[in-house]
């Protein structure tokens, strides 16, 4: 699963720490998310999308293997 967190963060002038504080996770989690090393829970994905005022599917791009 890919995501546009880094791009959207730059658009809104937010640091990783700002995003982390807004969604109540550690900065490390945002780093892992941006690197594509971690798939968030539905709740976290929803919270992140809400920060950028976008739908989940506009922030997280799911690529099916089938």
């Amino acid at each position: 699963m890919q995501n546009r967190i880094k791009e959207l963060r730059a658009r809104d002038n937010l640091t990783q720490l700002d995003v982390a504080k807004l969604v109540d996770v550690r900065r490390e989690t945002i780093v892992f998310l941006e690197k594509g090393k971690y798939n968030p829970s539905l709740r976290l994905a929803y919270d992140i999308s809400k920060i950028f005022k976008l739908k989940i599917e506009e922030v997280f791009i799911f690529e099916s293997n089938t």
């Binding site: 504080k21 996770v25 550690r26 989690t29």
Partner: peptide, 14 residues
């Protein structure tokens, strides 16, 4: 230190 800065100590990844 994290707690003082308002960063959660634990989250879903941890």
């Amino acid at each position: 230190k994290d707690e003082k800065e308002g960063i959660p100590i634990e989250d879903e990844l941890s």
